[in-house]
Amino acid sequence: MSVPVFTAKALTKIYVSGEVMVHALNEVDLDIPEKEVVVLLGPSGSGKTTLLNIMGGLDRPTSGRLFFRDLDLTDLEDRELTKYRRDHVGFVFQFYNLVPSLTAYENVALVTEVAKNPMRPADALALVGLEARMHHFPAQLSGGEQQRVAIARAIAKRPAVLLCDEPTGALDSKTGIRVIEALLGVNRQLGTTTVIITHNASIQEVADRVLFFADGRISRIRTNEARREAAELTW
């Protein structure tokens, strides 16, 4: 087994709102090896997004440690965390989060402008099959199309890790498969470690490793000996 990209030790995230304490993550230990495709499955509210956010440097854990390679993310200052996100992380958000006043192309360019070795925005959009809609604004795109713009934006910088929060949530099976294909293609070509949150159990077939979440803990880990291709999926 290769060196892990992410190593979590007793990672805990507690949200306090009023008198209620929510253990979104409860002492999670975890290794995610380099170049793997990892799928996170679990019921709603089980802490998947929380984990992904912390791995992406968007949020900080309450306690515990999280390493990216040998970089301790829990110790980083804001500025270092920003640099980490800019240099290494591609993020696909659960709610797309496109800038409404920018076109699809410009939303991608937003990232390629600050990245070190990016693709051309048009190429990234072509990868998700949106070259024809390049100059449309988010409000002119369907939910699935917005999601694909978000994916193009995430992969355009050729990140070391690609973190996707329900990238196919809004898509029909055909486009869903194309999106998964695009993600796997990036993983294959660039060796990008890819973490995908999904509610679609059939997607676990394409993963090297599947993490099952329940109540802020990883309840089970499954490793697939042989990954299926996206084209073989059905849902």
Partner: peptide, 13 residues
């Protein structure tokens, strides 16, 4: 929200 997004995408403060 857009400020959050820009931060998430790696834009410095």
């Amino acid at each position: 929200e857009q400020i959050g997004l820009l931060k998430a995408l790696g834009y410095s403060d």
